[in-house]
Design a protein around this nucleic acid. Sequence first.
RNA 1: GCGCCCGUAGCCCAACUGGCAGAGGCAUACGGUUUAGGUCCGUACCAGCGUGAGUUCGAAUCUCACCGGGCGCACCA
Length: 809
Amino acid sequence: MTQEQQETAAYDATELQEKWRPVWERLDPFKAGLREGAEKRYALTMFPYPSGDLHMGHAEVMALHDVIARYWWQRGYDVLNPIGWDSFGLPAENAAIKRNEHPAQFTYANIEVQAESFKRYGVSFDWSTRLHTSDPEYYRWTQWLFLKFREWGLAYRKNSPVNWCPNDQTVLANEQVLADGTCERCGAVVTKKELTQWYFKITDYAQRLLDGIDRLEGSWPERVVHSQRNWIGRSEGAHVDFVLQLADGSQRTVTVFTTRPDTLSGATFMVIAADAALASEVVAPGRAGELASYLEEVRKASDIDRLATDRPKTGIDLGITATNPLTGEQIPVWAADYVLADYGTGAIMAVPAHDDRDREFAEVFGLPIVPVYTESDDEGDQPYDKAAEVAAAIAKLEAAGTGQRTVNYRLRDWLLSRQRFWGAPIPIIHCEACGEVAVPESELPVRLPDDVRGEELKPKGSSPLAAIAEWVNVECPQCGGPAKRDSDTMDTFVDSSWYYLRYVSPKLDTAPFDVELMREWGPIDQYVGGVEHAVLHLLYSRFFTKVLHDHGYLDFEEPFSRLMSQGVVINQGKKMSKSLGNGVNLGDQLDEYGVDAVRLTLVFAGPPEDNIDWADVSPAGSLRFLQRAWRLAGDVTSAPGAPVAEGDVALRRATHKTLHEVEHLMETYRFNVVVARTMELVNATRKAIDTGCGPADPAVREAVEAIAILLSLVAPYTAEEMWERLGHEPTVARAGWPVVEDALLVDDTVTAVVQVAGKVRARLEVPPAITEADLEAAALADPAIVALLDGAAPKKVIVRAPKLVNIVP
RNA sequence: GCGCCCGUAGCCCAACUGGCAGAGGCAUACGGUUUAGGUCCGUACCAGCGUGAGUUCGAAUCUCACCGGGCGCACCA
């Protein structure tokens, strides 16, 4: 192609994509671990679930994530940027039932589609790291970790009322039930069921998880930090012992949790959670029937009803009394559903004078209300010191032996069993003689059967695996007698709680991950993903990391040093949805504008954490900009390596200032501003070529090369094409960040403004190093200022050299 | 109910530790280039920073109140 033809050739996004993709695949420029001596950086994006092809949400998160990873490459780091799939889960199972297939078919077909899309999208992944959580080679280690946790006393089975999703036909962890009582996955109203299930003892780590989050403040989005704190829900208070006088004349001590032990003298009754076993155990025989029918009523009420805070209080008198340990008074004991069985001790001391809920209850049932503090104590000029009162009350209780200081958490243990097929089987065998027996390590993985399909996978309230006799019936590994496998599978959040560790050694078959390599790469320097995992994946992963740290597998305690949560892509002010018909198809956008323009649009739209309204942005505008930038590369007439020191200083300053500022902007995630600065530099270069120093000036080459490198973070195809037109070998992605010359960051003169009474009255061109005294003198000598002051001496002069002088007349 | 975040041109968004309100883009209008243009180049239009008060020589930036929008938690004792 001649120079002229090249210049008039049109920019064709599709053509560029087809031209460069195979080149990159051959060069494989993003392979981790090959830069000798370079500092290592681990960039991670939440791995996708293969439910279909990529959509706008994926496009956004990958574009943002890739800016960081590619920037690190340019800055000379050795970058690990892995990719994998969170490939266990219900959608594949439901699809398999519908299509009479095995879930693996749907899963692996979708993974191929997504992998192809990622490659087209030009994300700088190291493809050799690729993993799928549904591969036996992976879930073998998920099972291994489960057994380790059990060994360490962190996985156990208990019978308890659990969250049950009637639609998905499985139990759910607390974290998977939304605030409105619906299933996080499918939206069905969650009910309760009494079942024996496996749990991880995450509550053992409640305080550690809180301490850790304190240290992440500033590096994690505020809302995620707050969500986790709220979720863990630390509350300080006291346990107080109350002695119950039962109907048969016996006594029984019941402990309550309170944050206000200082109000103990106002405790005029006690309330036990109606659904706590305690209520049925202590109820007077004459009231047992009443309690039973009340309990039935309570259980019928859905979570949604229970969660309505404006619901009138209900309850029944249990017909017994308790002794207030402070006043010695006999107070009635009630059962009610506003007290929760699984929080605190499931029983409270009710202080109606100082607790709104207790007051409401007392008013409904005519119970006495005895204030401990008067209104003037509460609201007067000198309100009482609550913390001091509480501390004093606790000291008193501890001295009397009727209570002690305690800390209570809202966090519950993580229920991990699921009654579904497409997950990692729990590697436990139940033997009539030996009880629970771990599957020996040498027999891992416990594989899912691969010859089941369609109807056989249908949920029946118990795991489909339970119905597969040849799978479920085994010999006990301990006694050789007849035994059955645990037929539940693990919550898929278990799979994703450790995948970031597997990436450093995805093929390792002697351990879940290479401890030494993890020491080198970990923790993750930058994690990018959706805020929907604020208390799910991000809490579970932190828990796993702490456990593995405590047992010597990791030298860090927090897995994700920095977290970025991107917003969501919406359209016309609303979430995209089929019912609204406002969906934007990623494939269509890519076909119309090209990968680079779509990526650029997503990055430029605004701060990463803000939502992007597709109606507010312009992929067409992005495409126009890319064409403008691309054209610059064709205009450069100097040869590579032209003596840049002799180039046009004004343009050189613009280039170096841009690079310098971008370095700062990258640190603070202001990628939209990075793009804006790149646009500015493109405009400045255009002007220099057309009406300034002309295309042959080495400064033009320097500027255009900088633009290509800047664009390589966002628009890799365009950048690569520019790089080639500039006479360089691929790939621009590994060109390296240009060295910023400090001397070019300062101008010969700067504009100082002179204000009189806050109004700008004059401008002075001054050297940047001017002293305050010189600047003041220059300002006071300015004719406009002299005229304005009219001989009067200024009252005060504030000088901020070299930018500003403010004269107060 | 408790807590947090955010309000800058018609729209999306910038503005380092308080220091000239506008960097970038979209949209609109006009002019030029062009065989044509939904191209390119150029020009213009547009807010006094949600409202009110305070601190300050000086406030988009700090403080308080209010209005508007968003988010988290929510009968957790």
